[in-house]
Nucleic acid binder design. Structure first.
Length: 687
DNA sequence: CTAGGGTTAG
């Protein structure tokens, strides 16, 4: 029934003075609810002289759909009649509303206990599977699955698609596939869409595409949206746009989900021109005030560096849309404009965890560690709830990047006192923090005690060993990783190869590098090549370094790789080649100042003062600017910052006299101090 | 007899 017809029908009853029969009133209430006319629905419900169980069900459902859980709950509690549908309606309300999840579980347990009276059915079970998916509770999900198999409630499209989604969200792609493969008869479209989404989530794009095109004539809007969004998520933006054009040519209806993905594609490509076209299209389709779309547009303009447009898009949706403001905060952070980010943050009436996290990571990225800790204090004061795990992870990252051991330990202690469930993310962040702060033993301790370890956990621990010169330990851990069946990824290999290059393990490095593709299905990227070039250079095998270097297309060669190659040339005393590479480095536009300094320092370290002087002259001619590198210490709850020759510290005199005596000791041992030593990771390059 | 509850895409 259309709304128009419903209103006409309702009006006729009112005119004639007759009361509509229960059946009609129920239908009308349902109709009003579907059109978000909750007041009309309630009014009609109040005026009913007689109600049956369906009347209660439709009015409760109306409040559930409009996210008015307290009202829905009150109606449920006062309902004069209830059946299984009533229970399922309020159960789904609890399951989908934030903060009501424990009510859902409690209600479900009650329904199970009172099996004789009301019982549970397939709808109850799929609702609960959905809830466990949202909570990422694999244990609960598995229990429900086996119960569903036992009671024969695992067959319908609803059941299958929910189960696929649950396994996918819980990180069990294999189980999701098993559920999908176990289906008999014709493939259910929603289940197919769910498995396509699951494939994309784990990066199995080819498989997703194959499934998508199989029986593609029945694909609906959701199928196309799922595939397009999956391609965007896996950085196949062009393919996503191609697919969108095909969708259009096939006359498949598209909607706001489609636009959100297309915006994501433009954003990933940093394609402002195309993004503007999509923006215009969105305006034409009157979707600009949609919260997701609007924040997508804001995100697009931020990522393309056009803050003016971003701001105007954000203000169009009014300062009501927290999604857009969060995108703006992220955008300002990327520009290093933390003042504006903070202003936007303050403008929000309610701060959710996402926006807190955005602000935290902004300060982390702009390396304002003091502010990060102040903000943590503020967060704990204002938010009565325990600190969000993600926020603590980002604070730990701040500690790691600042080598701030004491605050890191404080966070660790806080986690311990609060009895936080340590997940892989938190474990990895802690290991990384201790590693970067120089405490290998602590890092090791946490790694050994961890209940769950994923590839990231292994990666940070291997990298820790590699950075601290414990190359044999790094290799051992890699073997353990393989034995435990944890799949190594591209980062694992970077850590291992850098361990090899620090230790000069030529054979092992070669073996690893050339077995990457076949052994672990990882294609070597620029970083891996960089490690190998460096390894060959240090092993005085320039030919091999050259050979490898030439395999990389010029367009992909970055300064890090060029720097490694230059180093290899110089170590092998190939002046001609070195000069060639040097020119290429100086041609790189980005961070020009930093490149000059890098070169000058390299020559200075060699004691090649003529070359260094030459580079310094070039610097002047190019008017290269570089902020002074600085070192700092975290001591007595504050950060002490030093630059070269700096006398601004209040205890500068004492510091310099101690430094002089230390330098004297070093000279005494027989090794002169380095001119400008950047190798300890305490140098902050603020170029 | 016909109504009401559960699935996938941002």
């Amino acid at each position: 029934m259309f709304l128009k017809d419903g209103i006409k029908c309702h009006a006729q009853f009112l005119k004639s003075g007759l009361v509509p029969p229960i059946f009609t009133s129920n239908q009308l209430i349902h109709l009003y609810a579907n059109h978000c006319l909750i007041h009309e629905a309630q009014k009609l419900f109040d005026e009913m002289p007689e109600r049956n169980v369906v009347s209660w069900n439709v009015i409760i459902s109306a409040y559930v759909k409009s996210n008015h859980l307290p009202q829905a709950k009150a109606l449920f509690d006062s309902a004069s009649v209830r059946d299984l549908v009533t229970y399922n309606t309020i159960l789904s309300g609890y399951a989908n509303a934030d903060g009501y999840q424990s009510c859902a579980i409690e209600l479900f347990l009650g329904m199970q206990r009172k099996r004789g009276e009301m019982g549970i059915d397939e709808v109850t079970l799929t609702t609960m599977v959905n809830l466990f998916a949202k909570l990422c509770s694999l244990t609960g999900g598995r229990q429900l699955h086996s119960y569903m198999i036992k009671t024969g409630n695992d067959r319908s499209g609803f059941a299958v698609s929910s189960l696929i989604d649950m396994y996918s969200k819980c990180g069990c792609f294999g189980d999701a596939c098993l559920v999908f493969k176990g289906c008999e008869g014709p493939v259910d479209l929603v289940s197919k869409n769910a498995i396509v989404a699951a494939c994309c989530k784990v990066g199995e794009v080819d498989l997703a595409l194959r499934l998508f095109w199989r029986a593609n004539e029945s694909n609906d809007t959701v199928s196309w949206n799922t595939m397009i969004s999956g391609l965007v998520q896996n950085s196949y933006e062009e393919k996503a746009l191609e697919l969108f054009i095909r969708m259009w040519k096939n006359r498949v209806k598209f909607n706001e989900h489609t636009f959100a993905s297309i915006l994501g594609a433009c954003c990933g490509l940093r394609n402002l021109k195309l993004g503007k076209e999509v923006h215009a299209w969105i305006l034409k389709n009157d979707l600009i005030s949609n919260a997701f779309i609007n924040s997508g547009i804001v995100d697009l303009y931020c990522k393309c560096g056009n803050m003016k447009y971003a701001e105007s898009a954000c203000s169009i949706s009014g300062f009501e849309n927290p999604f857009s403001i969060t995108s703006m905060i992220v955008g300002c952070s990327m520009q290093g404009n933390m003042i504006q980010a903070r202003r936007l943050f303050n403008s929000l009436a309610e701060k959710n965890h996402v926006v807190w996290t955005a602000l935290f990571s902004g300060y982390v990225k702009s390396q304002q560690s003091e502010v990060v800790f102040d903000l943590l204090k503020e967060f704990r004061e204002k938010e009565a709830t325990t600190a969000d795990v993600l926020i603590l992870v980002s604070v730990l990252n701040a500690c790691a990047s600042q080598s701030a051991l004491n605050p890191g330990k404080q966070i660790h202690g806080y986690l311990f006192r609060m009895g936080f469930q340590m997940d892989e993310k938190m474990t990895s962040a802690l290991i990384d923090m201790y590693s970067k702060c120089g405490s290998v033993a602590y890092a090791e301790n946490i790694f050994r005690r961890a209940v769950k370890r994923d590839s990231v956990t292994y990666n940070v621990m291997i990298a820790c060993y590699a950075h601290h010169g414990q190359d044999v330990h790094a290799m051992h851990l890699f073997r353990e990783m393989l034995e435990k069946g944890v799949r190594p990824d591209s980062v694992t290999l970077i850590a291992l190869l850098s361990a090899c290059r620090h230790a000069g393990f030529l054979d092992m490095g070669e073996k690893l590098f050339y077995s990457m593709k076949e052994g672990y299905n990882i294609s070597p990227e620029i970083e891996h090549y960089g490690c190998m070039v460096d390894l060959y250079g240090r092993a005085m095998q320039l030919e091999k370094a050259v050979e490898l270097f030439k395999q990389i297309p010029e367009s992909q060669q970055d300064v890090v790789l060029l720097g490694a190659f230059l180093n290899a040339c110089r170590l092998n005393r190939n002046v001609e080649l070195a000069r060639e590479v040097e020119e290429r480095i100086l041609k790189t536009e980005r961070d020009k100042g930093a490149r000059f300094v890098q070169l000058a320092n390299a020559y200075a370290a060699e004691g090649n003062w003529d070359e260094m002087g030459r580079i310094r002259k070039l610097m002047k001619g190019n008017e290269a600017k570089k902020f002074a590198g600085c070192s700092w210490l975290y001591l007595d709850h504050r950060v002490h910052i030093f630059t070269s020759g700096d006398t601004s510290h209040f205890q500068a005199k004492t510091i310099y006299s101690i430094l002089a005596s230390l330098t004297g000791e070093l000279c005494h041992i027989g090794r002169g101090p380095c001119v400008e030593d950047n190798s300890h990771g305490i140098l902050l390059d603020k170029t």
